[in-house]
Amino acid sequence: MNFFWKIVLFFVAIRYGFFEVVFPRVSQWAVNSPDLLPAPAAAMSMYTWLMMVAIAIYILSSEERIADFMTPIHQFLKPQTAAAKKGMQIVVLAAIPLFGGWSYFDVNSPKMVSPTAVRIQHPTMPGSFEGMKNPLRDPTEEQVEEFIAEQKELAEEAAEDEEMEPVTVPNNIEDGRIALVSKWTEEGAALYAVNCRPCHGMQADGVGPMAVGWRLQPANFRDPGTIATIVEEYAFWRVSKGGPGLPSASTPWDSAMPIWDLDLSENERWKILLGEYFLAGVGPRQTEKLE
């Protein structure tokens, strides 16, 4: 096979073989999806262009390769006498302008093309949320002391009542603080199970029972690109203000995220965040420390 056809074959193999056939199947297999998962058209065309640039660079990177590549073309274009070769020449030469005309026609004829959307994933959060801290991650000493006192009472009850699970009383403030945060986390996860689970799923993977009904799919909190990459007050903003709180670059009209500050108290929303991060198995991004 000469160089020209090798290049053509390479292009076809990657563009059609890999992108169209192999890639959608590998993606489907990788995420266990019911559908084939081709790369979006925009990404595909970007990859193709970059590959064409690379191929052009390769051919043009030495005089020898340029000659190798062009020789078969010049050969083909030579005046031909044999009928078969002449016929072939005519067919190919006619096909090129025809294809060009057809492509132009195809691109410009009115078509049902879905409007593509550019969506900004993490728009700027409003200043009013900036610098907020989840108060439940660091309970005050009074809160911890109160909690330890409650636990003591519970433990006494549990000692008398056999049905109850044994209650551990934290020995000191530090243990108490940890126990209190984990109690709040559990309450938060329960709030999550009631309020967020229908869309985001009990596994925090964005596939709750309602998810199939939306066009814009609920966020998968296990994806490192979602709640793990943002600071907690950002998540608090998203929970509090919901889809309608997004700027228009983030297509608020497609988001089914409720405005939770209408229905849940501030404390409940922070609690839900504790539970949500816990269920997703990730932590919020830490604010960079000022030196």
Partner: peptide
């Protein structure tokens, strides 16, 4: 050059389940 959020059509969103291709 691969963006995190891709330029996508609603059909693609429907198949991929979001503006992120899982791979």
């Amino acid at each position: 050059a691969t963006p995190h959020s891709l330029v996508v059509s609603p059909e693609e969103v429907a198949v991929m389940g979001g503006v992120h291709h899982p791979v």
